[in-house]
Design a protein around this nucleic acid. Structure first.
Length: 903
RNA sequence: GCGGAGGUUGCCGAGCCUGGCCAAAGGCGACAGACUCAAGAUCUGUUCCUAUAGGGGUUCGCCGGUUCAAAUCCGGCCCUCCGCACCA
């Protein structure tokens, strides 16, 4: 029978669907496994497929081990990307339209319907449906009856409830916060609103703008290195740029016009005049720390469009300043502020980086970075209030001090010059009243740590990574002005941000159908309190709703908490950490998560998948080209769960042949009627040994080990038997365990497993069978075979170095006295060396050196006799057992390793 | 810098926790043979060096240490990758 994966997979998928075998009802020992839901803005690629497949393999294994497994999923649509895409399509953005057309073509839909995507919910629904198809194709044992998406009204109500709880527990707060912003648009902007925003990320840089007094004015000079202020020797002002004079807190300031226009969005300032740069050059200002007078020097290199457009100069520690001063011809003695074990001299740096003038911009940048890193991590301050401190320890404190002393302000600037897709400038604005979740609360952190401590976390390092995260996590902005999602109930101007609205939604899986029954318009906090927290607060509801709620509560209590949440490691530092915090904040302790596992990502042909590289492989392509089973097997066996998988198409081709071989073996064997030859029973022993090992591997999520044992190594064993004993004999043995073999692989390759199981007369689904139990009653046959194998290996070894032609192989087993000594050695240890000598001594010495023997069978000669004909044929040489050989040769014979003589 | 992972024989990648059966699984690649008119696919064998009898030598980032014995344990050093947030 030919292996037609397409037909097999279609058939079983349909049957699973029809019989609803992955839609569990309450009862037995439950196991709830979840994976973070995907964001529905495009076709899924093989990386998404992996995370779900690993979870599915584990779910299937658990199911076959008697657990009542619930594996639900839902869809994420909150946030800005979907909205942004739909806007772009509405605007007619060609790149986006082409991208979405290509998705639609991939799925065989009419690309002209792309214009329906100008409604964001159409994007979300379209891809949610495609994801369902993709995942059904993959053979995931998901209960689709419990799906929902994060844009549903029920979901909104639920998240509102969650945030009111957070508020009541004091975990929400408001404050000011810098954001990327488009002044012409009057709105914050995200990555996808910015030109090249996805490939060249824009972040917010925090400058410190220090006040330098010039008469009644303060010049605002900006720096990224406030710790060097002690070493300031002068200011640089661009003579050609126009500067604004403005009021801030009643004081008069000067900054470049460009700088002032940014500051307007960060602080309350009022422009009262202008002054040109060259009017200031040559004047003197007072530095704020000691009131020293320093000159303003002309600096044409100063970019008025960077921060406040005025800089202060620290020639001892800044290569820019050093070179600029050198060029200006001014005679100024640098002041040293930072000391390092290995001092860097500016002249050396100039040589090292091949800098000759200010026009070497790139090299100057490079040198600046080099110097800064060195000084930041190794430099110690040697002047002023912070003398003796390391910069890395004190930098933040310095900034705070300057601000509280009233000698500086923070100035937020974009990390590079950025423009919106419409071409308008992107700057940084301070948003007032930004909402935060206050993850910095100590008591909260302690509880989370307690939880982490008792959770089952895989792989092991996950625990310390989580603990680290808990220590570091601070306030997190949790709402935005735009995007899809749930409005913040206490301040509906704000929309809850997408990572904050998806932290405890796993609790909806058990009860979503009841909530639908109740209807979103009837949902209020009391119902959620009742269902999720068991608080008895339903008095004034009508009986029907009370009844449904009581059932929901029952189902929630049954399934919750989540036994295992599996995802890829990039989620550790965000989603998973929030997931833990939020559960601790909202739910009683017995509903806190039980286990988390993280896995690697998928790379393609050795490279990270990225749209820009054009090497993203859609899930659908793989399924079509190779089939789901092959893909699953590949994922399972290519790398351990927690390492990255490298998808290589030529290896995938090789898997195709293995799959075919497996299928053909099983189906051909099913037609054989003869009983196996006793000599070949070792293969059954081998299978059972591998099965036992694989089962253990599965338990600890070592899916790779399990798949290699059961699939690849087993196929090799079968091949060995075929080569040794011929196909006919091999098939007779394979028939004996093929069904069990298929079942043992069912978690990994469920479709082919169903097919083989049915060929062998199984009337129930393989997916619902008990996982096969290893049978160790064949052990002895394997020992005998191991012995034969080692003889074959030895023979080949000798053959390699012996170049003469031979027609006969004489095999002599070890003399009895050697077996006796071996027995004594095992019982008494090396002490027996005392009272033996000569040949015996040599023998025991070898034992000590080489360790015990592999194949321990006393009747070696009988076994050899048994396999003699096979060996003859296989090695293509005449064989004699315990024949005449030169006396010295017998010395080579050891228990488990007979002497071989060629003649 | 902080935290995590890792450096293994041409490549990928097991082994390391629980030292000895480890010249080190498996795959890829390469070489040779079988099949074929031929190529491919498939199958078989070889693949650190050396040796015309199963032996010897040198290997598991580098340097030391523990041990009868170390890829595996301990100490130090060098190097690589990942995360460090408001982005799903």
């Amino acid at each position: 029978m030919e292996y037609n994966y397409q037909a097999i997979e279609d058939r079983w998928q349909k049957l699973w669907d029809e019989k609803k075998i992955y839609e569990p009802v309450m009862g037995g020992t439950k196991f709830l496994i979840t994976v973070p839901y995907p964001y529905c803005n495009g076709a899924l690629h093989i990386g998404h497929g992996r995370t779900y497949t690993i979870a599915d393999i584990f779910a299937r294994f658990k199911r076959m081990n008697g657990y009542n497994v619930l594996f639900p999923m839902a869809f994420h649509i909150s946030g800005t990307p979907i909205l942004a895409f739909s806007k772009k399509i509405e605007r007619g953005d060609k790149t986006t339209i082409d991208l979405y057309k290509s998705y639609m073509e991939l799925y065989g839909d009419d690309p002209e319907k792309v214009y329906e995507f100008s409604k964001p919910e159409n994007i979300a629904n379209y891809f949610a449906n495609k994801i369902i198809l993709d995942f059904k194709n993959l053979g995931l044992s998901i209960d689709w009856t419990r799906q929902f998406n994060s844009g549903e009204k029920i979901y909104n109500k639920f998240v509102e409830w969650q945030f009111r709880k957070l508020m009541a527990r004091g975990y929400l707060k408001q404050g000011d916060y810098p954001l990327l912003y488009s002044p012409s648009d009057g709105n914050p902007v995200g990555e996808d609103d910015i030109q090249e925003g996805d490939t060249d990320k824009v972040s917010i840089t925090e400058f410190v703008s220090v006040f330098f007094e010039m008469g009644e004015y303060n010049l605002l000079a900006s720096t990224l290195r406030p710790e060097t202020l002690e070493g300031v020797t002068n200011l640089f002002v661009n003579p050609d740029s126009i500067h604004s004079i403005f009021l801030l807190n009643g004081m008069k300031f000067i900054a470049s016009n460009e700088g002032f226009n940014k500051l307007r969005y960060q602080l309350k300032v009022e422009k009262i005049g202008e002054i040109k740069g060259n009017e200031m050059v040559g004047k003197v200002v007072k530095e704020p720390l000691h009131g020293r007078s320093i000159p303003i020097i002309e600096g044409k290199f100063v970019d008025p469009d960077n921060a406040s457009g005025i800089v202060y100069s620290v020639p001892y520690h800044s290569i820019w300043d050093y070179v600029a001063l050198k060029e200006s011809g001014a005679i100024i003695e640098p002041i040293k502020v930072i000391e390092m074990d290995e001092e860097e001299n500016m002249e050396d740096i100039m040589r090292k980086f091949n800098i000759s003038s200010l026009s070497d911009g790139e090299k100057l940048e490079e040198a600046t970075k080099f110097l800064y890193e060195k000084e930041f991590y190794h430099g110690k301050i040697i002047r002023g209030d912070y003398e003796g401190k390391f910069i890395k320890e004190i930098k933040d404190k310095i900034v705070e001090d300057f601000i509280s002393k009233g000698i500086a302000i923070k100035f937020y600037e974009t990390s590079r010059k950025a423009y919106t897709r419409e071409g308008d400038r992107v700057i940084v604005a301070i948003i007032n009243g930004q909402w935060f979740i206050d993850y910095s609360k100590q008591e909260w952190k302690e509880k989370v740590k307690g939880l982490i401590d008792r959770m089952e976390l895989k792989p092991d390092p996950l625990k310390s990574q989580f603990l680290q995260m808990v220590d570091w996590i601070r306030e997190r902005p949790c709402a935005r002005r735009r995007g899809l999602g749930t409005r913040l109930p206490m301040d509906p101007e704000w929309i809850i941000e997408s990572l904050s609205d998806s932290t405890i939604y796993t609790s909806l899986y058990p009860v979503i159908r009841y909530l639908r029954e109740i209807g979103y318009e009837n949902l209020d906090d009391s119902i959620f309190d009742f269902i999720f927290l068991g608080e008895n607060v339903l008095e004034n509801k009508d009986e029907r709703i009370k009844e449904i709620a009581r059932n929901a509560r029952k189902e929630f209590e049954f399934w919750y908490p989540v036994d295992l949440r599996h995802t890829s490691y990039p989620h550790i530092s965000n989603h998973l950490t929030f997931y833990l915090f939020q559960h601790v904040a909202i739910f009683p302790e017995n509903d806190w998560p039980v286990g988390i596992s993280t896995g690697g990502i998928v790379i393609s042909e050795g490279q990270k998948m990225a749209k820009s590289k054009g090497n993203v492989i859609p899930l659908l392509t793989v399924k079509r080209k190779y089939g789901a089973d092959l893909f699953r097997l590949y994922l399972a066996s290519n790398a351990d769960v927690w390492y990255d998988v490298d998808w290589r198409s030529n290896e995938a081709e090789n898997y195709t042949r293995k799959m075919e071989r497996f299928f053909e073996l099983a189906s051909e064997a099913s037609k054989v009627v003869d009983e196996p030859d006793e000599r070949d029973l070792w293969l059954i022993a081998r299978f059972n040994r591998r099965l036992a090992k694989a089962k253990q591997s599965f338990e600890s999520m070592k899916i790779r080990d399990a798949s290699i044992e059961l699939f690849f190594n087993m196929l090799n064993d079968v091949r060995d038997l075929e080569n040794f004993a011929g196909k006919e004999r091999m098939l007779r043995v394979v028939r004996k365990f093929a069904d069990k073999w298929a079942l043992s692989l069912s978690p990994i390759i469920p479709y082919i497993s169903e097919e083989i199981h049915s060929i062998y007369g199984g009337s129930e689904f393989a997916s619902l069978q008990n996982y096969p139990v290893p049978d160790n009653s064949y052990e002895n046959y394997e020992k005998e075979w191991q012995f034969i194998e080692s003889v074959i290996e030895d023979y080949r070894n000798i053959l390699k170095i012996s170049q003469e032609k031979h027609s006969k192989l004489i095999i002599n087993t070890a003399e009895d006295w050697k077996w006796e000594l071996l027995e004594r050695y095992r019982n008494e240890g090396k002490h027996i060396m005392k009272d033996i000598d000569g040949e015996k001594r040599d023998f025991v010495l070898q034992l000590i050196k080489k360790g015990d023997i592999k194949a321990d069978i006393r009747n070696e000669a009988d076994v050899l006799e048994k396999y003699k004909d096979d060996l003859k044929k296989f090695l293509n040489i005449d064989i004699e057992i315990n024949g005449e050989i030169p006396p010295g040769r017998l010395k080579k014979a050891y228990p488990g390793k007979p002497s071989l003589t060629l003649s």
